[in-house]
Design a binder for these strands. Structure first.
Lengths: 191, 191
DNA sequence: GTCTATAAGAAGATAGAC
DNA sequence: GTCTATCTTCTTATAGAC
């Protein structure tokens, strides 16, 4: 059962349970049966609300992407200097060992092969990347960051460091490599 | 059938087929049956050579890790300045859209949950990270790289950028974000 | 809306013949 | 070493009753 969610209706519980399972096991590793058990819903109930596994995953992925975009915007659109906001993004509270609920899906062959499932993943990662680039541009305009930097390049480096930090952390079973990689990047970016 | 490998014996073909499937679909997404078909081997044949799925995956993962370590050492242990060798590592030929055959496994819940399967992944990523740190240290010692850098941190940033670059590339279906992230990092590292 | 029944095929083996 | 048979459980549904 989706323990933190007894007050949700069945459709909501199914989506939330799917989000958790996709995060932990990916699309290939998540079965409708596992979703039903986690949501406390029956077989017929699930197929009443959703057309099938793909349909349910689509709802779950869209919501996770939306949430990720909002969380990124919350720090990148905050107050402070450009460097401070990028630092806030990098140091933002994260469940490092669980990885990124969206980035994780890029390693799933069936998500990547399905344009509908891949679309929200591509869209939100592109949006966050563009938003970081805007902040870098602001830092260049104000003279806060050094002149030779390309905003799009630095934004890709920042996002890649985060996504790759998850990989290193999960490989070691410790969040330390994630934090180390972030500190390295912050040193390189330091005005 | 493992098309490029008709001359290998059954055991070899099974390992190579497993490496390909683990790379593409992960451990959770790879079935013994799929391995057998890709290797052109029968059920009984596979279970004669290997105790089961985990045993076969262990052989495959160990080999992929070994290969990755050797490829990294080939560029990091080459000639040239510290920066040039790190640049060579970052620009090294890669099948970007396929991702990293080793890093990819960190997103697999059953690999991460199994100490035997995770060990080669952790070991080789740690080894590459330490090797990059050595090269950064050489650059600091020679005065080629700026003084304020921590070798361990920069090494983690370099490896994370690569691993995260794969994520961004697969999300968009294009290798461009990988190359962009690498260029950003090279700009930040430039002596 | 939710439940149970049914089903073809895959997953991950084990057993024993050849 | 390789092959076929067999087994249990899981996967991903569909059909129809309540």
């Amino acid at each position: 059962m989706y323990s933190a969610a007894m007050s949700m209706n069945t459709s909501e519980r199914l989506i939330e349970a799917t989000r958790e399972l996709l995060w932990e096991r990916g699309y290939v590793g998540t079965s409708p049966k596992a979703v039903q058990q986690a949501a406390g819903a029956g077989q017929g109930s699930m197929y009443h609300h959703f057309a099938g596994k793909q349909d349910l995953a689509l709802a779950a992925i869209r919501r996770s992407a939306e949430e990720l975009g909002a969380a990124a915007e919350a720090v990148l659109g905050g107050t402070g200097s450009a460097y401070a906001r990028i630092e806030a993004y990098l140091l933002r509270e994260r469940d490092v060992l669980r990885g990124c609920p969206v980035g994780r899906l890029t390693m799933d062959p069936e998500v990547i092969a399905d344009p509908e499932l891949r679309a929200p993943v591509e869209e939100v990662l592109g949006r966050v990347r563009a938003r970081i680039a805007e902040v870098v541009q602001e830092g260049l305009d104000s003279g806060e960051l050094s002149g030779g930097l390309d905003p799009e390049e630095i934004a890709a480096t920042v996002l890649a460091t985060v996504q790759g930090g998850y990989v290193l952390a999960r490989a070691t079973g410790s969040r330390a490599p994630f934090d180390t990689a972030v500190r390295g990047l912050l040193t390189l970016l330091a005005p």
